[in-house]
Computed example of a mutant assay.
Amino acid sequence: MAAQPLDAEQTNPLQGGPSFSLRNRLLRAAWNVSWALLASWTPPQMRFWRRFLLKLFGAQLGEACDVRGSARVWYPPHLHLADRALLAERVNCYNMAPITLGRAALVSQGAHLCAGTHDIASATFQLKASPITIGAGAWIAAEAFVGPGVEVGEGAVLGARGVAFRSLEAWTVYGGNPAKAIKPRVLRAAER
């Protein structure tokens, strides 16, 4: 059930026309009401219930993954979480295009994953959507921003309040606005 933005030349969103199909808007309305009433208030331990609701609305979820109650998911069919992936408290998952988290990927509190933008050269300000992929074991730290089309490599880290508009290499730590590579991420041997 892919959701693609409508052609702005035909629908004229700048004059109040829709950016997405009626079916998409109705599903999102039902989703927002359902999440607000049935899940947004739930404690972390009720992940099974939140997972049930997300799956009911089309999300693809692996084992033991979680989306916290205060997180916002724009369009569940575009959410793909592998095993043990987590969208923490207050994450804004603005998934106009698919957003995929690999195994054990973590998106921390208040981070923003934004898979949509506008064509600023378009007279109609055409909406564009591009997928975001966050690799296995990667970490998007608190209040960081990941823009449309970004691929975060396996094990990469985007530091707190970092801003990524370009893809991030695997096993590298990034920070700042715009995000710049700081150092390699090297895991210590298991501590006993």
Rank of each mutant, 00 (worst) to 15 (best):
A123R: 15
V73D: 03
N95G: 02
L86Q: 01
R68I: 02
S108A: 12
Y75C: 04
G69F: 07
I120G: 10
D119P: 07
F48E: 10
N32L: 12
A97R: 01
S21N: 12
S122C: 12
E89N: 09
P44K: 03
T42C: 11
L22E: 15
C93F: 02
G116D: 06
G16M: 08
G102A: 02
D66T: 04
S34Q: 14
L27H: 15
T11E: 03
E89A: 07
A85S: 06
A39E: 10
D66H: 05
I120R: 12
N24G: 05
V73C: 04
D83S: 05
R47I: 10
R72E: 14
K55W: 09
G16A: 08
W31A: 14
P44C: 01
N12K: 12
D7K: 10
D83H: 05
R28K: 15
L113Q: 05
C65I: 05
A82E: 10
G69I: 08
V107Q: 03
A111F: 09
S34P: 09
Y94A: 03
A104P: 00
W35H: 07
G102Q: 01
S130V: 07
H112Y: 10
L53V: 08
W31H: 13
C93H: 02
N24Q: 11
L26Y: 13
N12G: 06
F20K: 13
A71K: 01
M46L: 15
E63C: 03
G16K: 09
L26H: 13
T117K: 06
C65T: 06
L27Q: 15
A64L: 03
L14V: 07
W49Q: 06
R84H: 06
A97N: 00
V73K: 04
P43E: 09
G69C: 09
V73P: 03
H78F: 01
F52D: 09
A71W: 00
V33Q: 14
W74C: 08
D83Y: 03
L86N: 01
R23T: 15
L113D: 04
A121T: 15
H78Y: 02
R47L: 11
L87W: 04
S21K: 12
A88P: 01
P43L: 08
D66V: 01
K55G: 10
L38P: 06
